[in-house]
């Protein structure tokens, strides 16, 4: 049954097989994608025609590797910028939110808390279209009222940032609040007692305590933003983010360049994930 109880051979064998099948299911598409990034073929499919790194480095008329593919490089750069701003904004506001819900008391706190949870139950597509509609409404209003053309209200970079921020901030709030819940408030009182003011208490004591959670949340926020598709789809302007750009390419046929990009993404995110895991483990010790 469990590891401390005696179990039959068949039971163990069945369970192990199931787990192995599950992990095969989990990793098969990723492994195949990575392997085919190095196949010396015009299409991301078998048979294997030999190993090549053309899809990364080549700059030939019939083969343009990712390092020379300006459109894809641009979209990667856009995604980086979006993710950077989203991570900064979401981490800041989410941390403030965690303090608000854990340490302050005010009227309508419950109501506000449920409003903060709302992005968890609103599908990303809806977040995208509602923000698109609202910014459009605002844009129209500004134009007819003051004859102002505000760039921010049109689909584009900053609207994408705001749209992603609107739900990623909820996750940051929850992660930081969970850590803050474990914080022993007598530490704050002790610091106050030793002569620190409220700001110094938060800076030297509370934020120090929260820092692993905040860094972790920022990393997750960055990744979620980098990969977001649903919300971004409706808010994107001329500068496509990487997922949007990849989607358009996958929909219209594929080349091994997509595999090359996927390979880089898989390696990059795995490294980030492992670093994150490593640091959170270290924190626990």
């Amino acid at each position: 049954m469990i590891r401390t109880l005696p179990t039959s051979k068949t039971y163990n064998w069945c369970f192990k097989t199931y787990v192995i099948l599950y992990f095969t299911f989990l990793f098969a598409p990723l492994l195949i994608t990575c392997i085919l990034a190095f196949n010396d073929s015009q299409f991301p499919s078998l048979p294997w025609k030999g190993f090549t790194v053309d899809w990364f480095t080549a700059n030939l008329p019939e083969r343009v590797g990712i390092f020379h593919d300006q459109i894809n490089l641009d979209s990667i750069w856009v995604s980086f910028q979006v993710a950077f701003f989203v991570a900064i904004l979401a981490t800041t506001v989410g941390t403030l939110g965690a303090f608000l819900f854990e340490q302050e008391d005010f009227r309508f706190k419950q109501l506000l808390y449920f409003m903060m949870l709302a992005p968890l139950v609103i599908p990303g597509v809806i977040l995208g279209i509602s923000l698109l509609l609202f910014s459009n409404t605002l844009g129209l209003y500004f134009e007819t009222r003051w004859n102002l053309d505000v760039e921010l209200f049109r689909p584009g970079f900053w609207l994408v940032v705001l749209g992603q921020f609107s739900f990623i901030a909820t996750l940051v709030t929850l992660v930081v609040a969970a850590r803050l819940k474990k914080f022993d408030r007598t530490l704050e009182e002790a610091a106050l007692n030793l002569g620190a003011n409220r700001f110094e208490v938060i800076w030297h004591i509370t934020l120090k305590f929260l820092s692993p959670a905040i860094i972790g949340a920022a990393a997750v926020a960055f990744l979620m933003s980098f990969e977001n598709f649903n919300t971004t789809l409706f808010l994107v302007g001329h500068e496509a983010t990487l997922p949007i750009n990849l989607y358009l390419q996958v929909r219209d046929g594929s080349t091994p360049v997509i595999n090359a990009i996927s390979f880089l993404l898989i390696v990059g995110t795995s490294l980030l994930a492992m670093a994150n895991l490593y640091f959170s483990k270290k924190e626990e010790e």
């Binding site: 002790a190 106050l192 030793l194 002569g195």
Partner: peptide
């Protein structure tokens, strides 16, 4: 008068040593 301005100090029941600082930093905090 705010607690951080009073000439009294308090030893807490569970001591409330700051886990994010070493001994010297704890003592130097005030």
């Amino acid at each position: 008068i705010a607690p951080n301005k009073r000439p009294v100090n308090l030893i807490f029941q569970h001591l409330a040593l700051f886990p994010m600082m070493n001994v010297a930093e704890n003592i130097a905090f005030g």
